[in-house]
Write a protein that binds this DNA or RNA. Sequence first.
DNA 1: CTACGATACGAATAATTATTCGCGTTTGGT
DNA 2: ACCAAACGCGAATAATTATTCGTATCGTAG
Lengths: 210, 210
Amino acid sequence: MRRRSRKPATAPRKLPVQARSARLVADILEAAVRVLEREGAQRFTTIRVAETAGVSVGSLYQYFPNKQSILYRLQVEEWDKTGATIDAILADAALPPAERLRTMIRAFFHSECEEAPLRNALDAATPDYHAAPESRAKRERSRAILAKFLAAAAPSASSSQRAHGAELVFITMTSVGKQLSERRPSHAEVNRTADAIAGMLTWYLAQLGA
Amino acid sequence: MRRRSRKPATAPRKLPVQARSARLVADILEAAVRVLEREGAQRFTTIRVAETAGVSVGSLYQYFPNKQSILYRLQVEEWDKTGATIDAILADAALPPAERLRTMIRAFFHSECEEAPLRNALDAATPDYHAAPESRAKRERSRAILAKFLAAAAPSASSSQRAHGAELVFITMTSVGKQLSERRPSHAEVNRTADAIAGMLTWYLAQLGA
DNA sequence: CTACGATACGAATAATTATTCGCGTTTGGT
DNA sequence: ACCAAACGCGAATAATTATTCGTATCGTAG
């Protein structure tokens, strides 16, 4: 447990060029997920990851500069996946805005619940991830997408009202989603909560332009 | 870092009987808070706590069976404090329900933000705290208080609707409060968010009995 | 005052950790 | 077939950790 330097690198130290090393990297990432789910964040260990992947620690360290970088890769992949889903739903002009919001929140909550063990372990293992610039950029993009959506959902609101609205939708959605996922709720319970939250947010947005 | 036994004890191993040992325990708890705030959860260490308190590790272990038990004591104290505040506000019959809810959420959010570094570190250091029976009991009591409040706030709702309402108020309040506290928001921003959340919840509760 | 339990101490122990490095093996182009 | 580079290995290293225990000091009851 050597002290981390001020800026823990996340970039791979060496890129896989042959097929076997590409497979090795893939195996390591897959094993990392399994270790997080089986053992939890506390017991997420380079040795355990290497063992689970069926490779040696030395090999692991040829493509990842440190333990953090493995978690970082997983975190980014995870975020990109759910981000794309959300964007697609919000942009679907065939549905009325309220319906889009409801569908999006349902999808988001279900996604959060499905990946709960992984995400919780990631959060516990990388508590400073939110300060990372890449994470900040991702959230900015999300807020931009939400703001565009609000132009349709609350057309008569001022732009500063819309900014506040986007902020509120974002914080409510993400925080309730996270907390909800920690309770292993039933499918029905997720839908009920999602619909309640979506209803409240819809009311709030309608309010904005009044 | 010996493997934790299946049930990590939280009860003190020995009760302080003389004045100096009572002071020692108090010093340790105070130092624990300082260490969490200064160093974070990752670097929260029995040795560091003892050093900061100006006592030796051995003394620490005479009154705390393990590291967890220190964090557990802090967690319980923290919870009791904000719980009492909330209960008092919700029970104040002099104000209309909507106003009570708004005041309570403002107070809760401000409290969350003030103690953010401590609470975040506690959460990171004791990720399994929510499974503890004592924590479960505390949440039950909160929900009971909320349910009683809902009898005044949504008198025409059925009892199962009220249960859902209490659940929604609880999860929304706690989750948004936690996430909000992680951004070091300004006083005004906290009030704005609290009022928006309180407004949405009030609308939702009014809805319930319609 | 005195003796005994309570208290305090902190070096020692045992476990676990992230990360490195030297050496053997495989690959792919020639 | 040959060889340089890429790859894979895992014991060794150095750091840090929680917790114990033998010993020394203190407080107080009698």
